[in-house]
Design a protein around this nucleic acid. Structure first.
Length: 199
DNA sequence: TAGAGGATTGAT
DNA sequence: TCAATCCTCTAC
């Protein structure tokens, strides 16, 4: 079942980030479907420094975050990587969930081809890598998440609360105390979650 | 309009 | 530990 606009437009972004674990993100490009189960996410809110929309600062880049939930927010990071988020909350409340890692479930051969990976191992473990595997680039910024090309499904996978870990987010040292918020969610012991420099 | 820096990655 | 790479934002 495709996740509805109502799922995304709820007001608690950390709850949505947690609930997205176990759901499946798909793209369908040129007739080829690729997808993976979400195993790692991060929540971002205008209320904290880690967020592009901190203090409700609206710019051409983050404008999509201010719209009603259920849209894709895709931006270029470090000049190299496309990072994919889903916008949450209602219009005017800038919040989003960054998808950081997937466990491949469909179109694996195509993803290997797109990433140039020798094997499927680690192919979708990392926010920059999974967008490449699924063929997501900035042309999808503002895209509706109930489209025929890009969507998230609830396949009925049950995620036990004890399997969910909440830890600080990655790569936002500039956010000061907000970098310590346990807003990174991942499935414990899942081999597809990111490891950072072996840590 | 210049300059700094980044929600990453992979090689050394 | 470090370079790649280019867009975005801020300050002037």
């Amino acid at each position: 079942m495709v996740l509805s606009a109502e799922f995304y437009q709820r007001k608690n972004v950390t709850r949505i980030a947690r609930e997205l674990l176990g759901k499946t993100l798909y793209t369908r490009l040129n007739g080829i479907t690729t997808g993976g189960m979400i195993v790692e996410t991060e929540a971002y809110s205008w209320k904290e420094r880690g967020c592009h929309a901190y203090k409700n600062r609206k710019t051409p880049r983050n404008e999509v975050m201010f719209r009603a939930g259920g849209l894709a927010y895709v931006y270029l990071c470090y000049g190299i990587h496309n990072l994919f988020n889903v916008v949450t909350n209602v219009e005017g409340m800038a919040e989003a969930v960054l998808i950081r890692a997937l466990e491949p479930v469909g179109g694996i051969g195509e993803m290997v081809k797109r990433t140039g990976a020798r094997t499927e191992k680690r192919m979708t473990s990392g926010p920059g890598k999974l967008t490449k595997a699924l063929g997501i680039d900035r042309s999808y910024n503002g895209f509706n998440m109930q489209s025929k090309q890009l969507w998230i499904e609830d396949a009925g996978t049950v995620v036990h609360p004890r399997k969910v870990m909440a830890v600080p987010r990655i790569g936002i040292d500039y956010a000061g105390e907000d970098a310590l918020l346990p807003w990174r969610f991942l499935l414990k012991d899942n081999p597809w979650v990111t490891t950072l420099h072996g840590k």
